[in-house]
Amino acid sequence: MSHAGTIDHHHDATTATGIPNKKLFMWAFLASDCMFFGALISTHLIYRLHPPPGSPSPRQIFSIELTSFSTFILLMSSLLMALAVNAIQKNYLTSTRHNLLGTIFFGLIFLGCQVYEFTHFVHEKGLTLSNSLFGSTFYTLTGTHGCHVAIGVLWLILTYIRSFKPAGADAGRPWLAGAFFHFFIFALTIVAGMATVLSGVHAHLAREPFREFISHNLLAVGTTIVGLAILTYLGRSRGAVEFGEANAIDVESMGLYWHFVDIVWIVIFTAVYLLEYL
């Protein structure tokens, strides 16, 4: 671990604006994304203010407990992301990796909650994308936000894998093949893990015995355990790597995107969920 701290992470003398180009691009993109979400939020609110006859009652559909939990999880993921940026700016690679993994984990919990929420709304509350205007605007808005979270998780995973690229120019194809394998295992473990957790929740609600749950979901549970073991093995330190303080701007750009997803949810949580309870 080195204590470089010699790079000015907030200014770049080589650009006309004094701001690193990647950061400038990200802020410009986020400014445009504000307008995108502004349009989706206003569409939802307009149709909530003027609902057509037969509109469902959101208060009887929403679960404030689940949504509050999701909000808390996303806030904590933002904290871990900020800590990851802080760590890489100090060239603390291990700490950066741990915080990135934590952010990925919390992002996946948020997505899992959203998958559970949507499944619950469709199958038990009868709210689909096309059977009411409320359903259309609600799923479009929260689904678009969920897509942003999913893209953020993908970006986090790719950055995490990239942090293992060995130092030196001879990394080449062997490393690329290894990185693909690492990503494949990540994706497989996430899908299997989510299937296991969601099946576990349904089994718990249906009061299914643990042994029956395991026997019904043997493939998903087994894949999750094996996948986690392989990821632990692949996540060990393997000597000098290319990734370091010079890549802080990459992590920071990703962090900006992740925090933006969080602030959009802050607005959605209030405008779409909490106002329904008044």
Binding site: H10, H11, T17, G18, I19, K23, L24, W27, A28, L30, A31, S32, D33, C34, M35, F37, G38, A39, I41, S42, L45, S78, L79, M81, A82, V85, E252, G255, L256, H259, F260, D262
Partner: peptide, 28 residues
């Protein structure tokens, strides 16, 4: 301002983001 570092970054980043934000709030 804290997690996204606007407090420590150049003010142009704040202006750039607030252009989009104000337009979005105005649209809503």
């Amino acid at each position: 301002f804290y997690f996204m570092h606007l407090r420590w970054d150049k003010v142009f980043c704040t202006i750039l983001f607030f252009i989009g934000l104000v337009l979005a709030i105005g649209t809503v």
